[in-house]
Design a protein around this nucleic acid. Structure first.
Length: 795
DNA sequence: GATTAGGATTTG
């Protein structure tokens, strides 16, 4: 077995041919043959089962002592163990242990940018790698081993100071005496606030004497209380006082009280749980815990008192304990908080879903349908609200004495429409009767490890998260906390300007109410399309209500090219003068090509020769070159000896960088005299009118996918898009700055690559209306209206 | 070196 547990100063030691190398000196090109690294396990990940008999485990070790030549930087390194090495290590070592490793290979750490640890990681596989767990020998004050070798100085000091503890049996407690005791927990309450200054926890313990003794612990801080997770746990208490109450002996903590708790499962690691900075623990303690474990198992003590049940096995009306992960939470009112939890199993009953405002929700707001089916909404009341307030999404919990209530019980403050009928509701009633309470379980507890495996299997199946065996990132999959808002006040990136006075509703409520209404919602932008701005720009005819894409340059080139083929003799209209322009020299194509233009005589007489010209036979490119010289250019062609306009797929007018289009259906286009008399400036409107053209409007059209805690909703941003962005669509069609502005806004509302939970919140006014889709089916559509982006801070 | 609580299902 390549995992060796070595006791300091005794028995086998690290082979002498291995020399230690400081972690900070390791690079991918370092020769690590016969080298060893040493450090404390500051993080031990779970044992991840990849498939049958293949495991992976990640840990972080930190060099504790200052090695010569080592800098304080990069003294922590990711270590990845594979196969049976991972499995054995998981059983043999714990966070806090000092370990040494040899026979490893050095890889690049894929998480260096995330964890800021060493740029390399150490990879340990079964073939050749060894890991040594270095355990100090704790001195045994009562019976030092006869053959004990000279122990390190520190151990001798500790020996001299080590107090000698004796433990009273529970059937031998004398009233008034202060004693130390061991016991198996048969009942316990989580610490709760007493009416005095302290938190109070009550427990009942027993031992081989079979005496059951109640204990009451008062401590100011909950963390100083016994860390009991379930019945069967074993507690060791120092300095508790025996008192008589109701003719029975009870134990109450006194000065100098300390407590250590151990899991009660036979054969499991004896791992002390305590908030004490230092505590005594020796081989006698180890033996005592093991004896109590096996005694408890033989008594079947726990069979009657444990009631931890997965969601898949929950019975209606039953009280049970639930081990789960918190995904999100939201306050309902001052006496009730919603906890959204899961344990990776699916409850066969329809579960109550409580709908809450997304802006008061902490944690992820919405989940995949598959995952949503696994999520239980737990309502916790009264004294548990304060405990719930301190929970962060992502933590693992055990909820004690949770009640599954079938039927349609009402939740105060929620309308009946917010509850599903025929559901199973989970309530954690107020009070502490029957151990009612919530406890955070540390990640390293066996039940949490098991839960993680189940959850991870869900990720694996449902989200295909685990794909590569050797990517140590995969270990982070289940660890990634749910997207969290951290309960911060939400600043919205948009504001309504409609002046409606109405309550904000959820997206699911919007969906439930029909068309013809206006709603105020608060939501996040999950996605939008199109992403390319030019695809969001459309041409819209206000007369026939048609909408079309803006033709691309390729199409325009072909129209121009087609039109230039037919430039035979053409009698100019009487209100024009024909002439030639030559293109600037740097123009591509035939050099000094001359193009036919028609100038307006009236404008010539006014000295406004460059205000409008009709241009014939040019390419698109040439047209664009001439834009610098003329304010308005109308492309024309010869058709049967007369001047006519180009196909209306092409712009009827080029004006500055802008191109103006007409509606094919609604225009009666022809080259007609432009009357510009008394007109200050000739613009697209005057020209369109003169040419009989129904102009098309530039519009912006986007589909936004909104989400809040309750639902997702596709809405259009169209009629109010210009005021939304503070940019005109026409400007966006021609002006880089306007385009950048829109793109920046979309990036800020829906940052590329980020997770949706972190997208900014948007206060929106939505209009629900009926529209016909392509198949002639009427459906309800939604548009954002009267909403403006609050300018994102420039970065 | 005080006081708290002293198990024992619920408003929802």
């Amino acid at each position: 077995m390549p995992v060796h547990v070595l006791l300091e100063g005794t028995g086998p030691q690290i082979p002498a041919h291995l020399t230690r190398i400081p972690i900070s000196l390791i690079t991918t090109s370092t020769d690590v043959t016969d080298k060893i690294v040493k450090g404390k396990v500051v993080h031990k990940g779970p044992l991840v089962s990849l498939n049958d008999d293949n495991f992976i485990l990640k840990m972080v070790i930190q060099e504790e002592d200052s090695m010569p030549n080592s800098s304080s930087q990069n003294s922590s390194v990711n270590v990845v163990l594979f196969g049976s090495l991972a499995k054995n290590f998981n059983q043999s070592a714990n966070q806090g242990d000092v370990v040494a490793a040899s026979g490893f290979t050095v890889g690049k750490s894929p998480t260096v940018h995330k964890d800021n640890l060493h740029p390399c990681n150490l990879l340990l596989t079964e073939d050749g790698a060894c890991i040594y767990v270095l355990r100090p020998v704790l001195p045994n004050p009562r019976s030092p081993p006869a053959n004990k070798r000279r122990s390190p100085l520190s151990a001798e000091l500790s020996l001299a100071k080590a107090p000698k503890y004796t433990y009273a049996k529970l059937d031998n407690l004398k009233a008034g005496s202060v004693v130390n005791v061991y016991g198996v927990v048969v009942f316990f309450k989580q610490p709760f606030k007493s009416r005095g200054t302290d938190f109070c926890s009550t427990l009942k313990i027993t031992d081989q004497s079979n005496e059951k003794i109640g204990c009451t612990i008062f401590c100011e801080k909950p963390e100083d209380h016994p860390k009991i997770f379930q019945n069967g746990d074993i507690v060791r208490m120092h300095r508790v006082k025996a008192q008589v109450f109701n003719k029975s002996i009870t134990l109450v903590n006194t000065f100098g009280f300390s407590v250590v708790t151990f899991g009660g499962v036979e054969g499991a690691l004896v791992e002390p749980r305590t908030s004490s900075r230092s505590f005594h623990f020796d081989q006698d303690d180890q033996r005592t815990v093991e004896e109590l474990r096996s005694w408890a198992a033989s008594q079947a003590l726990l069979a009657s008192v444990t009631s931890t049940v997965p969601l898949s096995a929950v019975q209606p009306k039953a009280y049970f304990d639930l081990t789960c992960q918190l995904l999100a939470k939201a306050p309902i009112d001052s006496t009730c908080t919603l906890l959204r939890v899961w344990d990776g199993t699916r409850c066969p009953h329809t579960l109550l879903k409580v709908i809450v405002d997304p802006h008061v929700t902490e944690g992820q707001l919405s989940f995949s349908k598959e995952r949503e089916n696994l999520i239980a909404d737990v309502l916790v009341y009264d004294n548990h609200v304060e405990v719930a307030r301190q929970l962060k999404p992502g933590v693992f919990l055990r909820i004690f004495n949770l009640r599954a209530i079938p039927g349609s019980s009402q939740v105060r403050g929620l309308t009946s429409s917010q509850l599903q009928v025929d559901h199973l509701a989970f309530h954690l009633h107020g009070g502490t009767s029957y151990s009612r309470g919530i406890r955070i379980l540390p990640d390293n507890t066996p039940d949490v490890q098991e839960l993680k495996r189940v959850i991870e299997a869900f990720h694996e199946n449902d989200e295909k998260a685990l794909s590569e065996i050797n990517d140590s990132d995969l270990l982070e999959v289940w660890k990634t906390p749910p997207e969290s808002l951290d309960g911060e006040t939400v600043d919205c990136s948009t504001e309504r300007s409609c002046g409606h006075d109405m309550q904000t509703v959820t997206l699911s409520e919007v969906k439930r109410s029909g068309p013809g209404r206006v709603h105020h919602v608060r939501a996040q932008l999950k996605a939008y399309e199109p992403h390319r701005l030019h695809e969001a720009l459309k041409l819209y005819c206000s007369k026939c209500k048609s909408m079309q894409d803006i033709p691309d340059d390729e199409l325009l080139e072909s129209i121009f090219s087609e039109a230039s083929k037919d430039c035979g003799p053409c009698s100019p209209p009487p209100w024009t003068l024909s002439g030639q322009v030559s293109l600037p020299r740097h123009a591509p194509g035939p050099s000094n090509r001359a193009l036919t233009v028609y100038l307006l005589t009236q404008l010539m007489s006014e000295g406004k020769i460059k205000d409008v010209i009709l241009l014939m036979g040019s390419t698109l490119e040439e047209m664009c070159q001439l834009m610098a010289s003329y304010q308005n250019i109308i492309p024309v062609r010869s058709s049967g000896g007369h001047l006519s306009l180009l196909d209306l797929s092409a712009p009827f007018l080029f004006r500055g960088r802008k191109r103006y289009y007409g509606c094919k259906r609604c225009s009666e286009a022809a080259v007609r005299e432009l009357s510009a008399e008394g007109v200050e400036m000739i613009d697209e409107k005057i020209i369109a009118e003169a040419l009989g053209i129904q102009p098309l409007q530039f519009i912006l059209l986007m589909k936004l996918e909104l989400q809040d805690a309750t639902d997702r909703l596709d809405v259009f941003l169209w009629r109010h898009a210009e005021s939304f962005f503070g940019v005109s669509a026409e400007d966006a069609s021609a002006n880089q700055e306007a385009q950048n502005s829109i793109c920046q806004i979309m990036d800020s509302l829906c940052p590329p690559g980020g997770n949706v939970g972190q997208h900014p919140w948007l206060d929106l006014c939505l209009m629900a209306y009926q529209a016909e889709d392509d198949d002639g089916q009427t459906k309800t559509c939604y548009q954002v209206c009267h909403t403006t982006v609050v300018k994102p801070s420039s970065e």
